Amino acid sequence: MTVSTTSFTDLTDPGLHATGDPHAVWRWMRAEAPVCWHPPAEMPGFWSLTRHEDVRAVYRDPATFSSARGVLLRPVRLGDDPGGGLTLALSDPPRHKRLRSLMAEWFSTRGVRRLEEYIRSATSAVLARAAETGECDFVHDVAGRLSISVICHIIGVPAEDHEDLFRWTNEAFEAHTSLAAHQRFMAYFIDLMDRREAEPADDLMSALVHGEVDGEPLTEEEILLNCENLVGATENGRLALAGGMLAFLEHPDQWRLLRENRELLPGAGEEILRWTSSATHSMRTATRHTVVRGQEIRAGDRVVLWLPSANRDENVFAEPYRFDITRTPNRHIALAAGEHVCIGGTLARAEMRILFSEILDTVRGIEQTGPAVRLRSIAVTGAQSIPVRIAAR
């Protein structure tokens, strides 16, 4: 018998994720309805998967579960994602792998190692700026500013333009709209694309402009949408960084543990990724008839993977609702798995390691001055704002 979520809640209600308790819902679903039908309303109907094993299996089977029709739920009236097949996030093998190869150098272990000096300098600058202002919003003024600075540097945006890009992305994130709909943002990248066409540089934009997939150059639309996707992904980055700070503020024993033993930093980063799980859901579309835990899924059906649920699965994580920077093993899938494992995973880990190292080295104290406000979103999860006072050493 198919179980419907209407019997207890609407997972597509942003209010649930902002002020409710979605983890209580997911906990029930993992136990009672791990493959659960959500009937259509404003959003199309879809199957919900909440267990770690099932989410991971879908990620690792792109032949059966396609990304090309979209990876996020969209209202029925909007139809499929218009970027389908054009971007790294919205493509399937073999094109996905070939498109990924154009960008891989900048996000590889070697590429990120070359970036570390810049990341450390940018981190130091945002922390100093935040300390000078006294009270600030850690999400916006530290995590957000750092994330956008790093990706802009990789793409090839001159430093003097970073503040404009920061402002435009904030406008889009706060309005919950696509960056592709922000006219000034897109106009800027059209101009940058044209400049790199005439004068290539050692940056990601040049790689996209002058690269080829299957012997053909990318179209202007493909270049722009891939840049938009990369910048848009900084929302997940800022939420993970800010969520890590909030976790430490709420669990001061874990901060003391990290301060006393810096060797725990890599593991702390993995636990922050699991704990925050900033991507709330990821969607796939079945390309053929299949069965998951005895439930038939037809070709064309949408399947939604709830990542915060998978990363609290009691069958995988001991005491999953405890923030523990010594957790091992930590088989989270906050950055996906398989072909679509996040290309920026190594970069995200480096940013996290450097940010918290710099805080330990240069900040005397961080005091939360008010309650954190959670986002109203079903796409990303975390704090919209965390008011803090940062005191420099």
Rank of each mutant, 00 (worst) to 15 (best):
E199V: 15
H153P: 02
F189G: 01
A187E: 14
T169H: 10
H153E: 08
D194V: 02
A181G: 09
S206T: 07
H162A: 14
L192H: 03
T177M: 11
F173D: 02
V157Q: 07
F189L: 04
H210M: 00
E171R: 15
D191T: 01
S206L: 11
E160W: 06
D161L: 05
M205Q: 00
A201L: 14
A180N: 03
D202G: 02
Q183Y: 08
D191A: 03
A180P: 01
A159L: 10
H210Y: 11
A181T: 03
A187D: 15
E160S: 11
F189W: 01
R184F: 14
E171V: 12
R167P: 11
L192M: 11
E197K: 15
A159I: 04
D194W: 06
M186T: 05
E199H: 14
A172L: 08
D161R: 14
A207H: 04
M193C: 15
R167V: 06
F189I: 03
D202V: 11
A181L: 09
A175D: 05
F166C: 11
A187K: 01
A201W: 09
D202T: 12
H210K: 06
Q183H: 13
F173R: 09
V209F: 04
T169W: 13
L208K: 06
T169Y: 11
N170G: 14
A187F: 10
E163V: 07
F173K: 08
Y188R: 00
S206Q: 07
L165K: 03
R196T: 07
E160R: 07
H153W: 02
S178N: 08
V157H: 00
L204F: 02
A198D: 15
D191Y: 07
I190Q: 15
Y188L: 03
F173Q: 03
R195T: 07
E197H: 10
D164W: 11
D194T: 04
A181Q: 10
P158N: 05
A159R: 11
V157M: 01
A180C: 09
F185E: 12
G156P: 09
I155N: 00
E163Q: 13
G156A: 07
M186G: 05
R196F: 13
A201T: 04
Y188C: 04
T169V: 05
P158A: 04
F185P: 01
H162M: 08
D194F: 02
E174T: 13
D202M: 08
M193F: 10
E163A: 15
H176S: 14
V157L: 05
I190H: 15
H162R: 12
H210W: 12
R196C: 10
R184N: 14
F166V: 01
A172N: 01
A172I: 02
I190E: 15
A175W: 03
H162P: 00
G156H: 00
A181R: 12
A181P: 11
M193H: 12
F173M: 06
S178K: 01
A198T: 04
I154P: 00
D191L: 07
G211C: 03
E174I: 13
E197Q: 15
V209K: 05
Y188I: 03
A180Q: 01
T169F: 10
A207L: 07
P200V: 12
L165F: 13
H162N: 01
M205N: 06
M186N: 09
E212K: 00
S178P: 09
D203Q: 05
G211K: 04
H182M: 10
F166P: 06
L165C: 08
